[in-house]
């Protein structure tokens, strides 16, 4: 069975684990570096990106995560998307630098501007409920990045090779199509590695 980890330093871990299980994968939470070893893929959940980054640094997770990502699929939602971006507007440095894109944090405003909206996501569906919470968005992408979803002229989901990211929170709904999409990506990569 495909085994996918959810980085559990902070944030909405339980919801991703449930969504993965509903999508037919085995799901485990990952708090220590050695727990990355037998995984086929990884989700970086929503949460506070600054808090997660501090814990990533503290436990020297950055390099092991980058090494993991060289071979295996990673899916980031909200804070996870921020951690995966190559460049962050207004900041000199980024985090894991996995996806060739520039993002802006808290780009839709403060919490009272947080919203739900129906999204069309390429390869997933035309009626996906996107839950945006103090969400970032993708300002621009490199040529190897495929834009999967746009909301009000802003890029909110993208894919580059075996990396997937979303500015919203599919884990907060009962619609598991995006998780199924990721599980499929993991299955395909697993076949190639084998």
């Amino acid at each position: 069975m495909t085994k996918i980890g959810v980085l559990a330093l902070q944030g909405a871990v339980r919801e991703h684990i449930k969504a993965l299980q509903e999508s037919g994968a085995e799901a485990v939470s990952v708090k220590r570096i050695d727990e990355l070893n037998d995984l086929d893929g990884l989700i970086i959940p929503g949460g506070e990106s600054t808090a997660m980054r501090r814990l990533i640094d503290k436990y020297e997770f950055l390099e092991p995560l980058k090494a993991f990502a060289k071979e295996k699929p990673v899916f980031g939602t909200c804070a996870g998307l921020i951690l995966m971006a190559k460049s962050i507007q207004g900041q000199d440095t980024a985090h894991l630098e996995l996806i060739d894109m520039t993002i802006e944090r808290n780009a839709f405003g403060r919490q009272k501007e947080s919203f739900e909206a129906e999204l069309e996501i390429k390869g997933v569906g035309e009626d996906v409920n996107g839950v945006f919470i103090r969400a970032p968005y993708i300002v621009n992408v490199g040529e190897d990045v495929e834009v999967l979803s746009v909301h009000n002229d802003r890029i909110v989901a993208a894919r580059q090779g075996h990396f997937l990211c979303a500015a919203f929170h599919p884990e907060l709904t009962d619609d598991y199509r995006l998780h199924q999409f990721f599980v499929q990506m993991v299955d395909e990569t697993k076949k190639v590695i084998a």
């Binding site: 559990a8 330093l9 902070q10 944030g11 909405a12 871990v13 339980r14 919801e15 929503g46 949460g47 506070e48 808090a51 909200c78 804070a79 919490q111 947080s114 919203f115 739900e116 839950v131 945006f132 919470i133 103090r134 929170h169 907060l172 709904t173």
Partner: peptide, 15 residues
């Protein structure tokens, strides 16, 4: 919405 308001707190978990 409830989902947006409760979801905000979900993102704070473990913190």
């Amino acid at each position: 919405t409830d989902r947006v308001k409760r979801g905000m707190a979900e993102m704070q978990k473990g913190g």
